[in-house]
Each structure stands twice: as C-alpha cells, then as structure tokens.
Amino acid sequence: MKKLIISLSIMIITVGIFASLPARAQDTDVMTDEHIARIKSNCASALATLGQIRTNDALVYVNRNQSYFSISDKLIARLNSRLALNRFDTTPLAKIATEYNGALTDFRTAYNDYSRVMTDLVKIDCSRQPVGFYDKVGEAREMRQDVYDAIKKLHTIIDQYRQAVDTFKQQHLTKLKANTNE
C-alpha cells in the first residue's frame, strides 16, 4: 500500500511538471520566418535609428544630470542651509532633500545600465543575429523604462519640495512677516 502511494505521488508530480512545460512555452513569443526576415531587411535602418537615439540620449542625459544636480546643489541645499542658519525647523525640507539625492543616484544608475545595454545593442549584427537583436531591443526598452520611471520620481519629489516650501511659508508666516518689518 505504501509503495502504491509513493508510486502514485511520483507519477502525479512527474505529470504535473511535464504538464506545466507547454504552458511556459506558450508564454514565450515564437518568431516566425516572416518576422525574422523583416528584422533582417530593416536591420540597417533600425541600427541607424538606434545610433541616433543613443547619441541624442547622451546629450539629454548630460543636460538633465546637470540640471537635476543644480536643483539640489544650487537651490534646495542652499535654502535648507539658509533656513537652518536662521534657526527655522527644516526637518521636513531636509527629509525631501535626502530623498531627492537618492532619486538622483537612482537616475544615474538606471541611465548607466541603459547606456551599457544600448552600447551592446548597436554592436549586434542584426542581419546575422536577428533573434538576439530583437531580444536585446526588448531589454533596452525595459532599461529605458527604468530611466523614465527614475525621472518621473525625481519630478514627483521636485513637486513635493515645492509644496513643502509652500507649507513652510504658511506655518511661519508670522515670523517671516516680523523679519520683513525688522
């Protein structure tokens, strides 16, 4: 009886494993010959477009990285410092500043990862390796999405800081007006 139960369990597990394999295979896209032929025929134009995107991305990154850093270094940090020197409570503003710097680091990391994938992508000869090229484009798209998300996060924090300054102004209006009259 024991042997029968063990045999049945092994059989059920084996069937279960093999039954799940076709389901996984259905998840992955099977590339047709027409699709591969299309990638090969459009290979040169796709590589030219990717080259332009890569060059333009580098410029946008340099400018954005500089602007985002300047927002932190030349505006946020300076206001926080000035408020602290004047003995205001800057805890909420400092907290957002820390969060912003973390998001800026994430943006730089995401771009570096994306840039490396793009460098690998433009080196692939898509007329010889159409499937590998197609997969790499998908990977690059995901990496670009990460950069895009990092930018969205930075913009959200930028807006949060603006709102925090508004709140600060409302909370300390009496003291600020008193300082104006001095």
């Binding site: 505006l75 206001l79 000035r82 004047n86 603006r162 300054v165 600020l176 104006t180």
Partner: peptide, 20 residues
Amino acid sequence: SFPASGTVNEATIDQFQKLY
C-alpha cells in the same frame, strides 16, 4: 543659484519660489 546666507523673510521665500 539661491544665496545660502542672509536673513529669511516673506520676500526671501517668494524669491526662492520664483527661482525654483
């Protein structure tokens, strides 16, 4: 850039908000 030192009053915050 915003000056890191000086007094803080309502006009200072307004100036920062505009610059920001």
